[in-house]
Amino acid sequence: MRKAEHQPAGVTGVPANSGIALRLDSVQKQYGSGPATLTALNNVSLALYQGSFTAIMGPSGSGKSTLLHLASGLDKPTRGSVHVGSTDISQLSGDRLTQFRRDHVGFIFQAYNLLPTLSVEQNITLPLILGGKSADNAWLEYLTNAVGIGALLNRRPAELSGGQQQRVAIARALISHPEVVFADEPTGALDSRSARAVLDLLWHLARELNQTIVMVTHDPVVAAASQRVIFLADGQLAGYRDGGTAAEISDFMTGLEA
């Protein structure tokens, strides 16, 4: 097991390069000011290759949610920069940031991923509708078949199982060919069988569609499904591990918390 201090996770200082989907450079995030300042993330740099499936783990309060928000453009860093593809999103604001997220970033949440009044198809194409674009039918068909919901397009979310709903959310996250898909505890609300199936699906999508996926989780079993696990502790990178088992990841986490 390598320790984070000696071997920073990911790649730092890499020049803009077509192989890099997400890059954070010396990102710092502070909340509040003066003596009450809380540093949620301190000097984090990392780069993720296109098509990688990365899990971000850490105990609660370690800054993993903050990292997700900054990387996905939901929040802006106090210092440092965030590149999604070749765009420095830390320079964008307001509607342009919203628009960028809509076109280049996909999201999957733990729960309440779908609008109950929209059909499955409408839910999937919602980012396109919001952007005033029409769906590429071939892509929609391919995608819905790939995630296994091709026959459910006219249903409403309430008529689907939890696992099916999460597959719809995955299809929606992918519909606009995003640079990166961010998943926040995507299996948190599922039973273990459905969770396994969703994780397998993400793994396949990353590999077959060369889709970059970043997943935040606290569950070592879930993290073990990814190619690489990056650990966070106290707002800093604490190490990484490629292809570990759930038990190994759990041991590493225990070490961090100790």
Binding site: L74, D95, T98, Q99, R101, R102, D103, F107, F109, Y112, N113, L114, L115, P116, L126, P127, L130, G131, R172
Partner: peptide
């Protein structure tokens, strides 16, 4: 509220 939040997260202004 959650519906609005979801809409905003997936790109509606």
């Amino acid at each position: 509220r959650r519906e609005f939040a979801l809409l905003r997260l997936i790109g509606s202004n």
